[in-house]
Amino acid sequence: MALEADAAPAALIRLVAALADNKYFLGRRYAGWCTSAPTLESAVASAAMAQDEIGHARSLYPLLRDLAGDSPQTEPETRTEFDAMPALQEPFSGWEDFVAANFLLDTAVTVMLEAARTSSHQALAQRARRMLEEEPLHWLHAEGWVQRMADGPPGMRRALAGALRRATPSALGWFDHAAPDLVASSMLDAGAQDLRMRFRGRVNPPLADSGLEPV
């Protein structure tokens, strides 16, 4: 508790801001495809996942406000200095980008939240645990589509491989937010290197099953 009484460390503020922004951007990007998904079922799933992410962002921005102090930069409507992954900056150009983001980027954020599950920062830990309840469904959707596209005709498989390659640097770079200070103060249970390993441990087996390159 002593930690929370002090001024919030800059690394924590950066982490919470980036979590909120990435949730927000994922939500917007998913929503952007809920009217264009290749099956009606996936259109519904995209809308549902978009709402999950937007809900998560809505719970994280108030935490950012508590940590960083009230300002236009802590409200999603007025914020301009977004810290979202490069691969989420533009709308997805095709369904393969949706699937790659769903599989790699959504999972990368999830791995970070898992590292905050037992955070010494109670408010973050609590939110992380609640958000994580909704993530297994996103993972199932992503895994299902990765396999479906990988098993498809060569052109589809190539497009997916390309989209995964484009999204990978964003996913791996994201873990830099797990700064050593955050591990030292038990706000996260692992640092960038370990989290990248956990992430690879999650995504590489299904990629291997589908005969795709590991990340």
Partner: peptide, 14 residues
């Protein structure tokens, strides 16, 4: 509405 499905079909034919 048709964009995603048609996009996948184009990939399949590529």
């Amino acid at each position: 509405i048709q964009r995603g499905k048609q996009g996948l079909e184009r990939l399949a034919d590529a």
